[in-house]
Write a protein that binds this DNA or RNA. Structure first.
Length: 542
DNA sequence: TTTAGGG
DNA sequence: CCCTAAA
């Protein structure tokens, strides 16, 4: 494996390295190298650009898969049956690919048009992918069996693929990469290919690609064990566009209960019927955008996304988007939304538990459907992955229109967030919200400096209250309120003392005194380079 | 543009 | 959370 690396590196820098890390994949790369060579050595007319993209993709795919599947493994150490496995495989890949597709497709298009096939592209793609992957991880991973299956799938695919890959490469550029990596790649590649090709208006490519695909697919599939899948793949092949959608569907199904191929096929068929092939690029674009929303989203797009979602899947929603223009217009901090869920429902059930608490304010009222769902992920991922998690969106879904709530976008503060905030305050001092935001909350777009400040204010209040009437409040807190750990409150109080909140918050100092001294004796006001507590070392800057 | 304060 | 005013 290692030996392969250097050669690969010549052609593809970044990729190769990463790939190498995953040992299992390395062997497969050999093929890639060859392909790449081809590409580089003999640039083809239009194809060149496509090829480049594809090849890149290949690399990327490989990278992605491992990461993903790790995640999957974590979540599900448990076993899968052979059936599920196969399914999972597909799903997994599909899911991944889906995610990647949008990214890739877009990029691909660009590249294609530009007809660049240089290293630059690679890097770009890489980056994008990385992002994508990270996002994807949260989603699909949760779901599933996928993890295990993936591992299985890889080995077989690779072993067998060598010959095929090379041969194919010459015949049709687009398809080349497919065979090697296996099913996953297939799909990916295909989709990508189509995307690019479409954009370029190359009909030829499509056809060829499909052909190739089938071949490759069957090939790969054989290895693992599932002949069944082959049929699926093949059937699915013709309509790549639809595929993406289908994929999701399948995924969901799978998750719920590893429903077999039957479902898949059905879904395929259904989609097929409903959608026309002719739709082509535009259609794809739609799809892509739909999923793609995930990433760029964040705040400003909420409305758009909603609209889109509506149009795309006809999801009913009473919208009157116009109603609160003011509110909406002002600060949209929205994140992802329904889409995220639909696509890859992370935690379907109870995770919301925490959400109900706080600010009885408007919530209490039923007007409310007011859904502020707590971020699901925070429960589990909280402590550590907080940045990532938050970034990805712990989705806070709010029922839009529920008449007049003022706080349109309410996102519950997770414990980790609060802790981060506290840390931030301890490090940077109170009032430097932007800094804190930048450094600690860079990942979570929805928390603005103002939010941080507000939260801090609330924390201060909370701590204060707690101190004043400890036991009572404590109990109350336990039951009704969100479980704000005392330690945290204590910290807040310490900090409050250390750097009092601007205005007259001094009031609380007296009470807190003892606690503070115990907790945090030293640390000068502004300069506390390190409180030593758990600090979030992670990504400092965007 | 960021912070502070009030709603 | 939102909004506004001040720095």
């Amino acid at each position: 494996m290692v030996q392969e690396a250097p050669s690969l590196k010549k052609y593809v820098n970044m990729k190769c390295q990463r790939v190498n890390e995953d040992e299992s994949f390395v062997p497969a790369l050999e093929d890639e190298a060859i392909e790449v060579e081809h590409l580089l050595a003999e640039p083809k007319n239009d194809n060149v650009s496509v090829d480049g993209v594809l090849s890149l993709k290949k690399c990327l795919d490989i990278e992605d898969i491992p990461g993903r599947f790790e995640c999957g493994l974590e979540s599900h150490s448990g076993g899968m049956d052979s059936n599920t496995t196969r399914e999972g495989e597909d799903e997994l890949k599909l899911g991944v690919f889906d995610g990647m597709l949008h990214e890739v497709a877009e990029v691909g298009d660009l590249h294609a048009t530009n007809s660049l096939s240089g290293a630059c592209e690679d890097y770009l793609l890489d980056i994008e992918f990385a992002e994508t992957v990270s996002e994807l991880d949260n989603g699909p991973c949760a779901g599933s069996h996928l993890g295990n299956s993936s591992s299985e799938s890889h080995s077989p695919g690779f072993s067998g693929s060598d010959n095929g890959a090379v041969g194919i490469s010459e015949s049709s550029t687009g398809t080349i990469p497919v065979p090697e990596c296996g099913n996953n790649l297939d799909k990916m590649t295909i989709c990508t290919l189509h995307g690019t090709s479409r954009s370029k208006c190359e009909c030829k490519m499509l056809v060829e690609g499909k052909m190739e695909l089938q071949g490759s697919a069957s090939f790969n599939l054989q290895n693992p064990d599932g002949v069944d899948n082959v049929s699926n793949l093949v059937s699915g092949i013709p309509l790549v566009e639809n595929r993406k959608d289908v994929t999701f569907t399948n995924l969901q199904y799978n998750k719920a209960s590893s429903i077999g191929q039957g479902m898949k096929k059905e879904s395929f068929a259904g989609r097929k019927g409903s959608r026309k092939r002719s739709v082509e690029a535009s259609d794809v674009g739609m799809l892509l955008s739909e999923k793609r929303m995930r990433r760029p989203t964040r705040r400003y797009i909420e409305e758009f996304s909603d609209l889109k979602s509506k149009s795309n899947r006809g999801r009913p929603k009473n919208s009157t988007t116009t109603t609160k223009n003011k509110l909406l217009g002002n600060r949209h901090r929205s994140e992802t939304h329904h889409k995220g869920f639909s696509a890859a429902p992370l935690v379907p059930s109870g995770s919301y538990g925490r959400s109900s608490d706080r600010t009885p304010f408007e919530v209490g009222v039923q007007k409310g459907c007011l859904k502020k769902y707590a971020s699901i992920s925070d429960l589990d991922s909280d402590e550590e992955s907080s940045p990532a998690e938050s970034e990805d969106d712990c989705m806070t879904i709010k029922r839009p229109e529920t008449s007049g709530d003022r706080r349109k976008h309410q996102r519950l503060w997770t414990l980790s967030e609060v802790m981060k905030l506290v840390d931030g305050v301890s490090h940077y001092g109170v009032g430097r919200w932007t800094d804190i935001k930048r450094l600690l909350f860079s990942s979570s777009a929805y928390r603005t400096p103002v939010d941080l400040r507000d939260k801090w204010r609330n924390l201060l209040r909370a701590s204060c209250a707690q101190l004043q009437s400890k036991r009572e409040v404590e109990q109350k807190r336990k039951h009704a309120m969100r479980p704000l750990p005392q330690t945290l409150l204590h910290r807040v109080s310490e900090l409050a003392i250390i750097h009092p909140y601007p205005k007259g918050s001094n009031s609380k100092l007296p009470h807190v005194g003892h606690v503070t001294s115990a907790m945090l004796p030293t640390t000068s006001k502004d300069a506390p380079s390190s409180l030593g507590r758990r600090l979030v070392p992670r990504k400092n800057c965007t």
